[in-house]
Design a protein around this nucleic acid. Structure first.
Length: 412
RNA sequence: GGAGGGGUGCCCGAGUGGUUAAAGGGGACGGACUGUAAAUCCGUUGGCGCACGCCUACGUUGGUUCAAAUCCAACCCCCUCCA
């Protein structure tokens, strides 16, 4: 939008690395940032027990925010998850129980420690849960204090709900309140922690703008919104799907090897973009990598995979995954223990177990389709009994499904 | 509350008594080709130790029938319009 280049470290780097989609007032925010450190927050609802790559771009933005001297605030939506954000969704989210939400919250919080430095002083990151204030709200006071600042006319025009209405799907009053509570969060964080900026995905634009407005109306304070682009792959797919579903950030949902593979399989035109967003590599280095042509670009993908994996799972795990992928070592492959292999187990049953397939039938299909290899030899007979003879001296057999999924199976 | 429309497999959507595990499309997965990319082409896409057979499935429950996603009843849910 603006032809004037930002002069604050944060906005300058965020812009050149491709993080900025929309900003409520780029010039004013730039000015503020140059005057001194600020606090910004991103909210994450506890809808699953792990975040996934779709969340990663905002986490990387918080990281950049901190690295440029500002304080990141991680908001876990223990309260708002009980509502369910309707933005750009056709149907209501399933209502989660409080116990599920609590469990999800526990699963999610760990990942931030990989990317941010927590602490009370200076730019130290802090974590808050909006349940701590939302739970205490009383209805009539809330309506009188906050509700008066919202125009239903305006809320109905937001893109985030328009499609739902136009397609004649039900939008419940429960869900319609989501944006009010998110706005309230922003105001609350502004009061409690001086948070002046809310960042988030582009789908959050409407909710964020409403919050900034609320702060201005209620407290006369200045607040900013900044959104990151919604990432799609070059071929137009929503990013973050892989062979076995979402690309989870928690290792118990997706092992480092699988995470590495996800990045390794980046489409050619996306390599530069992803290097800028998801690694800390200097721009000059990225410029060198992204111009590689044809098969040489694979080297850049390997760098992307290793760097991105190192940020999440640590350098050692990333190196192991890289080695496993190149075939140099099996150390980085996920290990699955299948005791029955000692006595012999049918190929389809082994495949089902090793890759967590939905059914034996699916495993059979994969074998029939020629997608399964055992120690690099194709498995063609779905009923083939696989036993101890297939295990190498180290007691493991290498089982592959397609080109991208590999595990080591052991008897114990 | 009233009137009308609708609920089909991961999604969209056809199907108004048997030949329907349910057309078609999308997505997904596998294969071929490649560079572990894209594009293209081919295959698969309910379960069961699975050629046979059995079981489960078209909002829910019950009924009619030799036979139901298809007919009937009640109920649940969604949409539109009207007070």
């Amino acid at each position: 939008m603006s032809t004037v280049l930002p002069r604050s470290d944060f906005l300058r780097i965020a812009s050149e690395r491709g993080f900025v989609h929309q900003c409520t007032d780029m010039a004013a925010l730039d000015e503020k940032l140059r005057a001194g450190p600020l606090a910004a927050y991103v909210g994450y609802d506890c809808t699953a027990d792990s975040l996934h790559v779709g969340h990663l771009i905002s986490i990387m933005l918080l990281r950049l925010w901190q690295n440029t001297g500002n304080r990141p605030v991680v908001l876990l939506g223990g309260g708002t998850t009980r509502i369910g954000d309707p933005s750009f969704r056709d149907e209501s989210r399933p209502l989660l129980t409080d116990a599920q939400i609590e469990a999800n919250k526990r699963g999610i919080r760990g990942v931030f420690e990989q990317f941010l430095a927590f602490g009370d002083s200076g730019p130290g990151a802090i974590e808050v849960d909006n349940a701590s204030w939302l739970d205490e709200l009383r209805y009539i006071p809330l309506l009188r204090e906050v509700g008066v600042h919202f125009s239903v006319n305006r809320m109905l025009t937001l893109d985030s709900v328009k499609q739902r209405l136009e397609r004649e799907h039900s939008l419940t009053f429960l869900e319609f309140n989501y944006m009010i509570l998110q706005s309230y969060d922003f105001r609350e964080l502004n009061r409690r922690h001086g948070v002046a900026v809310q960042m988030g995905g582009s789908d959050q634009w409407g909710n964020i703008v409403m919050g900034a407005d609320l702060i201005r109306r209620m407290d006369g304070a200045e607040a900013f919104g900044l959104t990151v682009p919604l990432l799609t792959t070059a071929s137009g797919q929503k990013m973050g799907k892989t062979a076995s579903g979402a690309v989870w950030l928690n290792a118990d949902r997706l092992a480092p090897f699988g995470y590495w593979q996800f990045w390794r399989n980046t489409e050619d035109p996306d390599v530069g973009k992803f290097l800028r967003l998801f690694t800390d590599l200097p721009m000059a280095e990225i410029a060198r990598l992204e111009v590689l042509q044809g098969a040489e670009l694979n080297a850049a993908k390997a760098v992307l995979a290793t760097e991105a994996t190192a940020l999440l799972h640590g350098r050692a795990a990333a190196e192991e995954a890289a080695k496993a992928a190149s075939g140099d070592s099996a150390a980085g492959l996920p290990v699955i223990v299948v005791p029955e292999i000692a006595d012999g187990i049918a190929a389809f049953a082994l495949v089902q177990r090793a890759f967590g397939l939905a059914s034996n039938a699916e495993a059979r299909r994969q074998i029939r389709g020629g997608g399964v290899r055992l120690n690099d030899a194709p498995v063609t007979d779905e009923a083939l009994v696989i036993g101890a003879a297939s295990l190498a001296e180290d007691g493991a057999a290498r089982l592959s499904l397609g080109r991208k999924r590999q595990v080591l199976v052991r008897a114990a």
